[in-house]
């Protein structure tokens, strides 16, 4: 019984990691399973978001504040992961923007954003 509580406690106390894993896997699943190009990008974005969480979890300390020097607070969260993820978010946004731009152009060129139909059009022409 005690062991079970221990295990459950360990699992629950790492809930942030579980969310990360869930987002990661579901994002990847959407990318693979969906044929709609916009939905794929949504999945991709979700996948990238999970990475942000992974970094931030590592830098967060319970009860810690932002790293601003102040005599009243002595416990800070590690600032470096936050800085890194700021960069990663920028990269993620750029990727999403470029991806969507490509989808717009694909829609103009093919009249659809479903992968199956696009491949079919190319096969027919070839």
């Amino acid at each position: 019984m005690n062991e079970f509580v221990d295990l459950a406690g360990r699992l629950v106390s790492h809930y942030n990691q579980w969310i990360t894993v869930f987002l990661m896997v579901s994002g990847l699943y959407i990318v693979i399973a969906r044929g709609n190009m916009v939905k794929k990008l949504v999945g991709l974005s979700l996948f990238q978001t999970s990475v942000y969480l992974l970094y931030l979890s590592a830098g967060k300390i319970l009860g810690g504040t932002a790293p601003i020097l102040d005599p009243d607070f002595t416990v800070y969260s590690h600032p470096l992961p936050h800085v890194l993820i700021l960069t990663a978010i920028v990269v993620g946004v750029a990727t999403l923007a470029l991806g969507l731009a490509l989808v717009v152009r694909i829609n103009e060129a093919y009249g659809t954003i479903e992968e199956d139909e696009i491949f079919k059009q190319d096969d027919d022409r070839a």
Binding site: L28, V31, L44, F47, G99, V103, I106, A109, I118
Partner: peptide
């Protein structure tokens, strides 16, 4: 070629992963 767009899109997905 318009297939360039699809190729770029696929590369984007794979590359980002």
């Amino acid at each position: 070629d318009r297939r360039a767009l699809v190729a770029a899109y696929q590369y984007l997905i794979m590359g980002t992963i």
